[in-house]
C-alpha cells in the first residue's frame, strides 16, 4: 500500500446468499486519480463502489479508505462516510426538503457547521453546478438533469476527499446527460478523486486515468484509457467493447 493511496482493496469478496458478487478484488486508488468502472450488468461494479462507504458490507478481505479500515466499527464507518461523497443513479434527493436544505442538512448536522456558513457553502456549490436560481424549489419540481446536479452539489457540500458516482447518468434523458457529465468533468479537472461507474465511454476516454473492467465479480483488467480501448488483453473485454462502441 503506497503513501498516496486513498482506497485500498485487498482480496475483497462478497456473497449475496450463494451468489458471489465480488471475487477476490484487489484495487488501489491514489489521491487525485479518476477511475471509471465499467462492465456488463451484474458484474459487481456497483457493489464494489458501494463497499467503499459501507452501503454494502464485504465479507472477506480488507478495505481501507483514507487510512481508516472498514470493519463493523460504527465510528470507523462514520469517519469514512464523512469523507466520501456519493451520487446515485436515482439521485435520491430528499423530496421533503428544498434544494438548499438538501445541501445544508449534512454540513449542519454532521459537520456541526453554523447555518449561515452551511448556506454560503451550499450556494457556492449550487452555483458551480448552475442551479443557483432553483435553490428554493423542491426536488420534484426540477428536471432529472437538474436533480442530479443538485445531488452532486449536496455531496460536495460535505467537502469530501473522494467522490463515488454510481451510474449517475443512467436514469437521465439523453439531452440531460451532457449537463451532468460537464459538471463531473469540471470536478475532475479540479483534482477530485473520483470513482465512476458508467457506460459513458466518451467520458471515460476524456477523464479517466484508469479504466477498470469487471465481469462476474472480478476485475478483468485495469489500465489507462488508450491502452484499454486500443489494446484490450482479454477476450471478455474485447467482446464488451465491441458491443458498446
Amino acid at each position: 500500500m503506497n503513501q498516496d493511496s486513498i482506497i485500498y482493496f485487498e482480496n475483497v469478496s462478497k456473497w449475496f446468499g450463494d451468489f458471489q458478487v465480488l471475487n477476490n478484488i484487489n484495487l488501489e486508488v491514489n489521491k487525485g486519480e479518476k477511475i471509471v468502472v465499467c462492465g456488463p450488468s451484474g458484474s459487481g461494479k456497483s457493489t464494489m463502489i458501494r463497499c467503499i462507504n459501507r452501503l454494502e458490507e464485504h465479507q472477506e478481505g480488507k478495505i481501507i479508505v483514507d487510512g481508516t479500515e472498514l470493519t463493523g466499527n460504527v465510528k470507523n464507518i462514520d469517519t469514512v462516510r464523512r469523507e466520501v461523497g456519493m451520487v446515485f443513479q436515482q439521485f435520491n434527493l430528499f423530496p421533503h426538503l428544498s434544494i438548499l436544505d438538501n445541501c445544508t442538512l449534512a454540513p449542519i448536522w454532521v459537520r456541526k457547521m453554523p447555518k449561515a456558513d452551511a448556506t454560503e457553502l451550499a450556494m457556492r456549490y449550487l452555483k458551480r453546478v448552475q442551479i443557483e436560481d432553483q435553490v428554493h424549489k423542491y426536488p420534484n419540481q426540477l428536471s432529472g438533469g437538474q436533480q442530479q446536479r443538485a445531488a452532486i452539489a449536496r455531496a460536495l457540500c460535505m467537502q469530501p476527499r473522494l467522490m463515488l458516482f454510481d451510474e449517475p447518468t443512467s436514469a437521465l434523458d439523453p439531452e440531460m446527460i451532457k449537463e451532468v457529465l460537464d459538471v463531473m468533468i469540471g470536478l475532475a479537472q479540479d483534482g477530485m478523486t473520483m470513482l465512476v461507474v458508467t457506460h459513458e465511454m466518451g467520458f471515460a476516454k476524456e477523464v479517466a486515468d484508469r479504466i477498470v473492467f469487471m465481469d462476474e465479480g472480478q476485475i478483468v483488467e485495469a489500465k489507462a484509457p488508450t491502452e484499454f480501448f486500443e489494446n484490450p488483453e482479454s477476450d471478455r473485454t474485447k467482446l464488451f467493447l465491441s458491443q458498446i462502441l
Binding site: 462507504n53 452501503l55 462514520d78 462516510r81 464523512r82 466520501v84 461523497g85 456519493m86 446515485f88 436515482q90 435520491n92 434527493l93 430528499f94 442538512l105 449534512a106 448536522w109 454532521v110 449536496r154 455531496a155 460535505m158
Partner: peptide, 13 residues
C-alpha cells in the same frame, strides 16, 4: 424507498 436511507447514510447522518 431504500435510496432515501442510502443517501442519508452516505452523507454520514
Amino acid at each position: 424507498p431504500k435510496g432515501q436511507y442510502e443517501a442519508a447514510q452516505a452523507l454520514g447522518l
